[in-house]
Design a protein around this nucleic acid. Structure first.
Lengths: 351, 351
DNA sequence: GTGAAAGCGCTAACAC
DNA sequence: GTGTTAGCGCTTTCAC
């Protein structure tokens, strides 16, 4: 990325005009020869408008290129058909799949979705929560970045919200989760069954619920197999770089692991890089199972065993719950848990 | 994903209150014993307000949990510190990297970014353009989904916009591109130099400029090497599924390709799957170069040669141009072209 | 330095 | 059915 070259040249004069006056209801009303109220009614499809007038209004609006002013409308209506989705990493396919699920459901009922990237930072998350409140969105779906998320503000204002992938501590909100602890346990049990002896775990930061749960499931399985709890656990940010460091550290131990449970696909990239650098062959020297069935997982050498999570469904369910809560703020909150699926490939088959 | 199980249960009563009245400037004013005008001035950091009063106002605002009403403010100010970013695929790492670039620059100057996913559909793109106009965003950055994008609306209203990754046909707007034709030419020349004979190309839909350019660069290289233009070209949507079909089709030809130029990383996944299914070994039987240096590219077997594009920089530059245009609508539009870099790995080394 | 008042564009009462 | 009017919450002249 260092040897970029850049051409910068002007391509002429720009057609953007500052003075362009934006037409309003009054302009449309004047052109159609009716009142602003009629314009509003006609354009919003209210049935109490004479069809002829409505047609005249629509034509006038078209001719003027009228587009309603959203902020004004929302100010008046005291509500907007917009939901905010705050996720912790736009570059993580797991979260973008959630986003697709949310989008599809929201669009079906005419809601827009604005995507906010909290970048696993509680600070940015709070900033976006404030923005969501200030923009008076109808609801918020979020995957909390840490244990200290301050969604209390949302509750205090009566803004609907749903937690996705990670629960909100001390909040009885709607929540959609994956049974990730069980999945981690099954994945670890699979590694044990394959005869691996020193199974390690690379998971996310303490306080991030999915990271804690995956670690707990890993320990469940070791305990059930009467292994002593391993010292081969590393916790780092949910990204390739952190996992890369963690894997190098583990490989440098006097008794390095012969298998690893990895808590997401970005981390899997870091671990695989580290193994490559150290000349350790995945599958042969070190068994691997990673969370998230990334599109490339079956293409690496050897194909990577994964825990496939229903990310799209997670988003879709969260969106439905949010819409339900917007419609009825008094409904009792629900918790939904979706199952994950272990896909066994060559990276976890004992040679 | 079929064998999901779902637990649905109530977790108690929800704390969301519908009646919660949201405090306004008037409430703050009353509590601080000043006028609404002073509240506004104090909260916006205007220097013409007595420090003591300002402190009182801030305290009152805190106590009430006051959050300004965004739509109302924007309505009054006739502008919002928000830019819309319309990209054609949120699940494509290339575009999410662009998004990060845009975000980082925008946040530096206090702008928010709303991300819209047009899903390579001109229809959705237009829908989002309408929404952007209606929400009266300060500007729009978009990667047009097709040749018929109707950004004309933006120009007509005087809304600032910048095209990223793909130009807008017939618009002299600001634009930030990658010299993708040259990159494709270099990648193809590299395959030729390695001694591959029947080099094919899997690229995106006709009318999508990057797809056309990559194809053109490919042909440039063949022509320069005095090869007759190959019939081994397939065009499909910019996704794994389309590329998968295209690759299967190419492999079934009487004279199948012995090398392929692939127009993005999602397509590379589809091609690699197809090769795997047919027992064709990448690198040995078929040389490969793909656009986009996905994190996993070096991890597949053999490591994938790629054309690395400066996606983050693309977004960052686009954001800077947009901010400049918002500040000065009359400035002449510029075109910026960034270079790409060929990274040669084993998938394109002739055995 | 501060307050009173107007008004951004729209919709929803309320008249007619 | 349609028009008149008030007002959503905020900022910003304009007086003082």
């Amino acid at each position: 990325m260092t040897e970029l070259w850049v051409i910068h040249y002007s391509t002429g004069y720009c057609s953007v005009r500052k003075g362009a006056r934006v037409p309003t209801v009054s302009d449309v009303a004047a052109r159609a020869g009716v009142s602003t109220a009629t314009v509003s009614r006609a354009l919003n499809g209210k049935p109490t408008v004479d069809p002829d007038l409505a047609a005249r209004v629509r034509q006038a609006a078209d001719e003027l290129g009228y587009q309603p002013n959203g902020p004004a409308r929302n100010l008046r209506r005291q509500e907007a058909a917009v939901v905010a989705l705050i996720i912790s990493d736009v570059e993580n396919p797991f979260f973008t799949a959630i986003a697709r699920g949310v989008e599809d459901v929201a669009h079906e009922v005419g809601y827009s979705v604005v995507l906010c990237n909290s970048d696993e930072s509680v600070e940015k998350e709070n900033r976006y929560l404030d923005i969501a409140i200030q923009e008076r969105v109808a609801g918020v779906i979020l995957s909390p970045s840490g244990p200290t998320s301050t969604v209390a503000k949302l509750a205090a204002r009566g803004t609907a919200y749903v937690a996705v992938d990670r629960p909100l501590p001390g909040q009885d909100s709607d929540v959609v989760l994956v049974d990730t602890r069980l999945a981690a346990r099954e994945a670890t049990a699979h590694l044990i069954a394959q005869g691996y002896e020193r199974i390690g775990c690379v998971t996310g930061p303490a306080g991030v619920r999915t990271a804690d749960d995956r670690l707990a499931g890993y320990r469940d399985a070791l305990k059930a197999a009467r292994r002593r709890t391993s010292k081969l656990v590393r916790r780092t940010e949910y990204k390739a770089a952190g996992a890369h460091r963690a894997a190098l550290d583990l490989l440098a131990q006097p008794e390095p692991p012969d298998a690893l449970l990895i808590a997401n696909s970005a981390m899997a990239v870091g671990v695989l890089q580290a193994l490559q650098e150290r000349g350790v062959r995945p599958g042969r020297d070190v068994g691997l199972v990673a969370f998230d069935d990334a599109p490339w997982a079956a293409l690496v050498d050897p194909p990577l065993s994964v825990v496939a999570q229903p990310a799209y469904e997670l988003g879709a369910v969260a969106a439905r719950l949010l819409l339900a809560r917007i419609a009825d703020p008094a409904r009792p909150p629900t918790a939904t848990t979706l199952g994950a699926r272990l896909i066994k490939r060559a990276s976890s088959r004992r040679p």
